[in-house]
């Protein structure tokens, strides 16, 4: 299998404070990768460093290249709380933005682009909302619209920042199924995740962070009491037997 992401000795400092220190890992193509860890563990910082949005020391290569050479190929879904939901934009126009990086600046949006946006909306089951202003939707619907924007981009690598926060069960199911479909198509999906309860069913690979890398690899290997305790300290209670493990965490 090809390597999607290779990270060597990645460190990020914000004004002298350490956000991430000496993180190294590599991930294969065609996986759903969960990034978990307590608050302030550097999950968002890691994603920003991978996307080349913050200064870092160390090496990051994506598909064997530097991130600047394949930006069109990387779709990013922001945390819902960072968006101005009063912005005067309809669902269909927000999804069309996923096509912007493919349209040369001197050209108008083509029919092909609008069709791609339309198809992406259907994939997330939001086609009947296309004329709604984005703020009129529920949290889960908003998240699905932003996933549709990422789909419209035809990317091979997806970065999702806390996509399951504050959304309904139905939307969560639609999104999880979509991510699994994308994986079947050989796409790689990076998900920052907060809640430990569904880690085992959602992800193939796990990155456990707490400023340093606590563990990286298949979920089965990483998601165990020792590593969780290392990452969360006393803040997560793990009750486990041979067959089952219950995690009570933040």
């Amino acid at each position: 299998m090809k390597k999607t992401i290779e990270v060597k000795n990645l460190s990020v400092h914000y004004y002298g404070d350490i956000a991430l220190e000496n993180v190294s890992f590599s991930m294969n193509e065609g996986n759903i990768i969960g990034v978990v860890g307590p608050n302030g563990a550097g999950k968002s910082t890691l994603m920003k460093a991978l996307l080349g949005l913050v200064k870092f020391d160390g090496e990051v290569s994506i598909f064997g290249q530097r991130v600047n050479e394949l930006r069109k190929n990387i779709a990013y879904v922001p945390q819902r709380s960072t968006i101005d939901w009063d912005f005067p934009i309809l669902v269909e126009d927000a999804v069309l933005m996923g096509r912007y990086m493919h349209i040369p600046w001197y050209k108008k949006t083509a029919k092909k682009d609008r069709e791609k946006a339309e198809k992406a909306l259907e994939q997330v089951g939001m086609e009947s909302f296309r004329k709604k202003q984005i703020g009129e939707l529920s949290g889960g619907q908003q998240q699905r619209v932003f996933i549709a924007r990422a789909l419209a981009q035809d990317a091979d690598l997806f970065f999702l920042d806390e996509p399951f926060v504050g959304i309904d069960v139905n939307s969560e199911e639609i999104i999880v199924n979509l991510l699994k479909q994308l994986r079947e198509q050989g796409k790689t999906i990076f998900v920052i995740h907060h809640d430990l309860s569904k880690v085992e069913t959602y992800f193939d690979e796990l990155l456990m962070l707490n400023q340093r890398l606590i563990g990286a690899g298949p979920v089965k290997e990483i998601f165990n009491p020792q590593i969780l305790k290392q990452a969360y300290g006393g803040n997560a209670a793990v009750i486990s037997s041979d067959k089952e493990m219950v995690v009570v965490g933040p």
Partner: peptide, 10 residues
Amino acid sequence: FDETMAQAAG
């Protein structure tokens, strides 16, 4: 509308 996405898109 979405500065981080704009930045991520290059």
